[in-house]
């Protein structure tokens, strides 16, 4: 995965070719293709919406509208690693707030923000379905449970060098 501040049209087209070699162009696959793009680039921008729209025969603005609906299809610049700390009650009861503070300390930005190097975005997430092992967080598609502030910091550190 690459995250640079400027994503060129060529990069987008290459990646789309790559994704579409495995998927067909049914509208039903639209979300799946957008998810792949987010996996690759970290977020969706106007170039991607235009190119995806062209391939699918869907208006690019419709692609934008659809993306903007979903929490996992960010339409604003977003970091390479999305740290999503569960904010729902079961995790909260197990001191998820302390986990957030620890991570804020570790990466130096507050909730809802992205680090300058575009590496981490710290977000809140609704129930991750890990309530029995609270508190929990996701980093991209990896889940981490039964966190303590120290454990959380350690996990983040392991990503810093990736």
């Amino acid at each position: 995965m690459t995250v640079s501040s400027k994503i060129s049209k060529k990069e987008v087209i290459n990646e789309l070719d790559n994704i579409l070699s495995k998927t067909n162009l049914d509208r039903g696959n639209l979300l799946c293709v957008l998810e792949e793009l987010v996996r690759k680039f970290g977020y969706l921008n106007d170039i991607m919406a235009v190119e995806v729209g062209k391939r699918f025969g869907v208006d690019p603005n419709e692609v934008y509208s659809v993306s903007s609906f979903y929490a996992f299809l960010p339409v604003k610049k977003s970091g390479k690693y999305k740290i999503r700390v569960c904010r729902t009650i079961s995790c909260k009861l197990k001191n998820a707030d302390n986990i957030v503070k620890a991570i804020e300390d570790e990466i130096g930005v507050k909730f809802g923000n992205t680090t300058k190097d575009m590496k981490f975005t710290l977000e809140r997430a609704n129930c991750l379905g890990m309530c029995d092992k609270a508190p929990a967080m996701l980093i991209n598609d990896k889940v981490y449970t039964e966190l303590t502030p120290e454990k959380a910091k350690e996990i983040i550190r392991s990503y810093k060098n990736k």
């Binding site: 009650i89 079961s90 129930c127 379905g129 309530c131």
Partner: peptide
Amino acid sequence: DEGEPGTF
């Protein structure tokens, strides 16, 4: 989709 808080 299991999204209801507290359901796993």
